[in-house]
Design a protein around this nucleic acid. Structure first.
Length: 119
DNA sequence: CGATTGACACCAA
DNA sequence: ATTGGTGCCAATC
């Protein structure tokens, strides 16, 4: 069943939307920057999503940013966490298969907001 | 204000 | 299939 989130119009900032989507990522699932950007209407603004995440660590430390990886399912931003192993460790703890900072079952663990969520 | 950087993605060769 | 180059938008220097 679709969550039907519907990002409130109160979210005026692009970053807020990113935070919202990331916060809605179910445990054991992951998504990509491009998917989030696409969901927000800017499929080419993946870098922006990454930028938002970078700040999210300081602004929203509770945000499950470890569930956001690049298009390849690679834990590109693991170095931005408390420790370089925090990201992979959390993903593994959630049931994901992460080897060498690479999500093995990325295909089945992939969670596309554009598909799972209703705009 | 101009140039460079950044947790990326996509197209072309 | 792999590698290289270009585009995205905002922030920081």
């Amino acid at each position: 069943m679709k969550s039907t989130i519907k990002i409130s119009e109160k979210n005026k900032d692009f970053f807020e939307k990113v935070y919202q989507v990331v916060a809605l990522i179910p445990e054991g699932k992951v998504t990509s920057y491009g998917a989030i950007g696409k969901y927000l209407g800017s499929p080419r603004s993946a870098r922006m999503v990454g930028w938002a995440m970078n700040h999210s660590v300081k602004t929203n430390p509770n945000l499950p940013a470890h569930r956001v990886v690049n298009r390849n399912g690679l834990l590109s931003g693991k170095m931005h966490f408390e420790t370089a192993s925090t990201m992979a460790d959390k993903l593994i703890a959630e049931g994901l298969l992460v080897i060498d900072d690479q999500i093995q079952n990325f295909s089945e663990a992939f969670w596309d907001p554009s598909l799972e969520l209703e705009l």
